[in-house]
């Protein structure tokens, strides 16, 4: 088939005009181009199913081998409690409250952390003043802030949001700073030669050049925000998916423990996907 060969050679102009490709050749070509992705998806599905199967076997036969699966709920039990929970307004409220805390705490961290990092990266004196304090506070895990947060804030809700804020704040700040330190000085000079002043250099060079690192910071920050939130909810919460999981243990609702864990996993995954999507929207030059 000379026509098909001519199309197959990308970039070169076919010697003869190719005939309109049939559905079959198109499907084949699509398959060839997407083979890698298709395989990854297929393997991923099989791997998830295998995980469920192993989980099912371990719990059905109540395996005790160093680890005790005696009380661990089976996948079917968790599914049963899931179908019950989605009709339960209380469960949904737990989820909504956790999401709201993340939204507020994380957004505040981004609104403060990104501009602060940009300013610290641009103005040495600000960096010299703030960086030492940040370095001392940064290694303190957000969970260690729980008692202090309860003292600082009048309501439980505020202290939990504060913990979430702290967890995501430092990764966002540090990565923004890192991005600023890597801005190519030649690009700054190019902008100056085109008549750019301080403000436009900041807006048109430093900021977009740092965006990839800012988004790394946001992704990491979102992960730490969930870690901090769940810990805070387990210790001091009254509502929230972390509290739900801990309460399930106290009430001997073993299936709900796993349900809570899976919900946390799905929410964490969903929120980091949202950030990745936002990153692709904001940085179109980086997507293929």
């Amino acid at each position: 088939m000379p026509a098909a060969n001519a199309i197959g050679e990308a970039g070169s102009v076919p010697a003869t005009l190719p005939a309109t490709p049939t559905f079959g050749t198109l499907a084949l070509r699509w398959y060839r181009l997407n083979r890698g992705g298709l395989r990854a998806t297929a393997v991923g599905i099989v791997s998830l199913l295998a995980f469920l199967l192993v989980w099912h076997l371990l719990t059905t036969y109540r395996v005790v081998f160093f680890v005790r699966f005696t009380n661990v709920p089976s996948p079917l039990a968790v599914y049963a409690s899931f179908t019950k929970a989605i009709h339960d307004p209380k469960f949904l409220m737990h989820i909504v409250l956790s999401c709201r805390r993340i939204l507020v705490g994380f957004s505040l961290a981004a609104i403060v952390g990104v501009p602060l990092g940009l300013i610290m990266g641009r103005f040495k004196l600000v960096h010299e003043i703030i960086f030492p304090v940040a370095e001392v506070l940064r290694p303190i895990p957000a969970i260690a802030w729980v008692p202090m947060a309860i003292m600082l804030w009048p309501t439980n809700e505020q202290s939990i949001v504060f913990i979430t804020f702290l967890g995501s704040f430092f990764p966002i700040l540090i990565n923004t700073l890192h991005g600023m330190s890597l801005v190519d000085p030649v690009l700054v000079r190019a902008a100056q030669c085109l008549g750019a002043r301080e403000r436009s250099i900041f807006r048109d060079v430093y900021f977009p050049a740092s965006l990839p690192h800012i988004f790394t910071g946001l992704t990491v920050g979102m992960g730490v925000a969930w870690v901090s939130l769940i810990a805070a909810e387990m210790i001091s919460g009254q509502y929230g998916i972390g509290y739900f999981t801990w309460e399930a243990y106290s009430l001997v609702q073993y299936a709900d423990i796993a349900l809570g864990m899976i919900a946390i996993g799905v929410l964490g995954l969903g929120s980091s996907m949202l950030i990745r999507g936002a990153g692709q929207l904001v940085m179109p030059w980086r997507s293929r």
């Binding site: 190519d184 030649v186 690009l187 000079r189 190019a190 902008a191 100056q192 030669c193 085109l194 008549g195 048109d204 060079v205 977009p208 050049a209 965006l211 940085m283 030059w285």
Partner: peptide, 18 residues
């Protein structure tokens, strides 16, 4: 100091990637 009156071309191209 730099100005738009003196246009410059760099070896590293220095186009704004964004």
């Amino acid at each position: 100091g730099p100005s738009a009156e003196r246009g410059m071309v760099f070896q590293q191209y220095s186009l704004f990637p964004w």
